[in-house]
């Protein structure tokens, strides 16, 4: 029931943002649309609704955002250096990195953040062993750097999503 309520509120806010200068007509249609979506998908939205009322999570999320943007910028400069350099000497490979995250949502966010930072994309993840298979553009000495980045984001995500 609470999951449905949260999905209704989130859907309604997104509708209001889509039709930004809202008036009464838009709000009326928005309530109908959000109620319809809630009726279809209400129970799938979240397993633990109590998580939505913890304030610390949002504060940690505000801390994660600038860290993520800065890492993303550095990773892009790194890739750009490889692309622009005249003689391409890559040592790519797939490595296996263990994480300590257990929940679906935590693993999903970790995989997405790793894909956007620091020369690695997630190829697959194993939920039983909770490890990620990362394709790295330069394996060699970078393995420690990537493992360190994974651990750093892992700690932040554990505070936010678990």
């Amino acid at each position: 029931m609470r999951s449905k309520l949260i999905l209704f509120i989130v859907g309604f806010i997104i509708w209001c943002l889509l039709r930004f200068p809202v008036d009464a007509q838009h709000i009326f249609i928005g309530i109908i649309v959000a109620a319809f979506v809630t009726l279809l998908l209400g129970d799938l939205f979240t397993n633990r609704p109590a998580q939505f009322f913890k304030v610390q999570r949002y504060l940690w999320f505000l801390y994660l955002m600038p860290v993520f943007i800065w890492e993303c910028f550095k990773a892009n400069l790194d890739i750009a250096r490889y692309i622009i350099s005249p003689n391409l000497s890559l040592k790519p490979g797939i490595i296996k990195v263990k994480t300590s995250l257990k929940t679906d949502i935590g693993l999903t966010y970790l995989a997405n953040i790793i894909t956007l930072t620091r020369g690695a994309i997630t190829v697959d993840l194993d939920k039983e062993e909770s490890c990620l298979y990362l394709h790295c553009i330069e394996v060699g000495d970078k393995k420690e750097i990537i493992t360190a980045a994974v651990n750093k984001f892992e700690n932040l995500i554990k505070k936010i999503f678990e």
Binding site: L90, P92, I94, I95, V123, V139
Partner: peptide, 10 residues
């Protein structure tokens, strides 16, 4: 993987 790749743990 392309030539020159080092290792595939998958």
């Amino acid at each position: 993987l392309c030539e020159g790749s080092v290792g595939n743990e998958y």
